[in-house]
């Protein structure tokens, strides 16, 4: 099981636009990726490609989240996704 921490970099939090960008990126990953707030049990983690789950997470700017994935390419996929989360998409 690969696991990464990421800190939300979008000033507005994981809201509609940043969530859409991240959900699309997660859907393109070759493995299934889950997302959870730091400190929450792994079995409560949500589907990272679901925009509604991401928005329901209520992750604000600076919130730490945990990404998890299993299987071939998991490490590379998570590295990529951490970058997406830590970018401030609202400044683009």
């Amino acid at each position: 099981m690969a696991e990464r921490q990421a800190i939300i970099g979008s000033r507005v939090g994981l809201h509609a636009r940043p969530a859409a960008i991240f959900a699309e990126a997660a859907a393109e990953a070759p493995v299934e990726v889950t997302i959870a707030l730091e400190g929450e049990p792994a079995e409560d983690a949500l589907d990272a490609s679901s925009i509604l789950s991401l928005m329901g997470l209520g992750a604000e700017y600076g919130t730490t989240v945990i990404l998890r994935a299993e299987g071939e390419g998991a490490e590379e996929a998570l590295d990529k996704l951490v970058k997406v989360l830590e970018t401030d998409h609202d400044s683009e």
Binding site: A16, S50, I51, L52, S53
Partner: peptide, 16 residues
Amino acid sequence: QAVLKATALMASDRTL
């Protein structure tokens, strides 16, 4: 465009 993209993702949302 951003709003429409996000709503398109909501429509095909796997969790929903």
